[in-house]
Design a protein around this nucleic acid. Structure first.
Lengths: 134, 134
DNA sequence: TCAAGGTTTAGACAAAGTCCAGGAACAGGC
DNA sequence: GCCTGTTCCTGGACTTTGTCTAAACCTTGA
């Protein structure tokens, strides 16, 4: 799998030892626009024909989050999703099918932050729910 | 439990037949400022010395949501929380202990909604994460 | 009194995620 | 090359959150 070379570099740059399992997971999640769940990643990474367990998927996704390769987002009921877009941005979630769509940071601006002086803010995002127009 | 009278009226006004279980659950959740989980509600409602099962708590909370008495919010990993504040508002979640705090709608304003023309928006809120200052 | 709805229950089940002990793989030093 | 210690991966047990189902338990009204 020659195209994996790219992921070897990315992992090394983030201080992560590349292994076949981690590369398969990286390939499944890092360029995804679909905000996959851990189970989605498990299914896709297994297609890259590597021996892979569920526990490793969870361990690795958490490692990627810790090392700044991914963000975990709490947007769906019952399950976390992983987002390779680590720039700040907002989210839209479709009520019908749960599809999550990134909204660029610049599209929306939040005024009134100065009223939140009692908090040390780590992140802030607008969460929009509804339906995509057909 | 005379103070339950108040809840009898609230349930009736929302087209819900009052029962001892529903009243215990109403008392546990409707005036809470703590964004309880289903399990929190189960624990508290049982203190009102009613026979009560987990299934009834889930059924009843979902019924309350459907009838507009509560909102379900997806803010914590792994579990839904229930919010008796049905006015629109924003949320702050403390990274340390998971405490959820309501932010009044008027404190923040979101500009740029016109860029979301591709969506039929049902609700929109700002989600802020970080730490409370000591 | 009886039937029909509506309500509650225990327990089975499913899904998401964590934890653990054992084994495999691998890097560095000789 | 060959140890040795560390890192990594695995299956399976376990926990938590939530749903489902069949049976039982009210009410209510005829």
């Amino acid at each position: 799998m020659a195209f994996m070379k790219e992921y070897v570099d990315i992992l090394r740059q983030h201080g992560i030892q590349p292994t076949p399992q981690r590369l398969a997971i990286a390939a499944a999640v890092l360029h995804s626009a679909e905000h996959p769940t851990a189970d989605d990643v498990y299914e896709e990474a297994r297609e890259y024909s590597t021996v892979l367990s569920r526990a490793t998927v969870y361990n690795t996704l958490n490692l990627f989050v810790e090392k700044g390769l991914l963000r975990m987002q709490i947007l769906k009921e019952g399950t976390a999703v992983f987002d390779p877009n680590i720039e700040r941005h907002h989210h839209f979630i479709d009520d019908d099918d749960g599809t999550i769509i990134d909204i660029p940071w610049g599209w929306l601006s939040v005024r009134g932050r100065e009223r939140l002086a009692e908090f040390d803010i780590r992140e802030m995002q607008v969460v929009v729910r509804g339906r995509r127009k057909k």
